[in-house]
Amino acid sequence: MLTILFDGIAYGMLLFVLACGLSVTLGLMNFVNLAHGAFAMAGGYATALLMNRAGLPFLLTLPFAFGLPALAGLVLERILYRPLYGRPHLDQVLFSIGLVFMAVSGTDWALGSGQQFIRLPAWLQGRAEVLGVPVGLYRSFIIVVCGVLVVALQLVLSRTRFGSRLRASVDDPRVARGLGIDVGRIFALTFAVGSGLAGLGGALGAEILGLDPTFPLKIMIYVLIVVTVGGTSSIAGPFLAALLLGVADVAGKYYVPSLGAFVIYAVMIAILVLRPQGLFARAR
């Protein structure tokens, strides 16, 4: 029972790291970026390739898994995404889904269609007993890393100058610009960080979710569910939504395996019927 809860939380944490970048671009910048999963895949491949070809240890690859997609995000934001900010949502959806397909075929062509494998260091394999509950070491590691990230993100958004500028730019870009805030630069940075977080999520998730060129399509639905259910106005919303969905998914598959795959959708529908604007969003 507690093991199920633990697995669910670890899975939820992973979903959150994958999804929080999207909740930022979608909620704060009002841009529908379905290609978010492609950045996650980039992070996963960065880790897998650096480990398998360059022989770097797992932990050392994680900064690259964050940095490379962030850099890619920064460049793409500048040359591809920016012209689309003012366009209708349908254009953004079509554009970004196109990017996903390009990323999928591009990866397939360059690196093959097979699964990429990551060999974890020995100290992250196996499991340990904590208070009588057997827990997986790697899953504990995910929980710790993601927990730290959540706290850090929340602090940055609510306590720092950058955070308040970002919130100001989102609330009313025109006034923010009038006050001398460089809205474009703030959005670019936010986009890059969001992409980087997705990359980190991809790297951490490769071991649990598997990693192949169709990764962006595989996780897209889960990520979108998290963002929809969580609402897009804060970090806390998607975070709690991710935890809830993670636990519901794992518990559903454990207790009713025959219906397991549908539990997550049932939870989503129930929540959206009760709170169409998401769990924690202010009513508009």
């Binding site: 199920i4 899975y11 998914d249 794992v250 395996p257 795959a261």
Partner: peptide, 13 residues
Amino acid sequence: PLRNPDFSPFLQR
């Protein structure tokens, strides 16, 4: 499920 991201609940069961 064929498109299953995580085996943990099934394995635990």
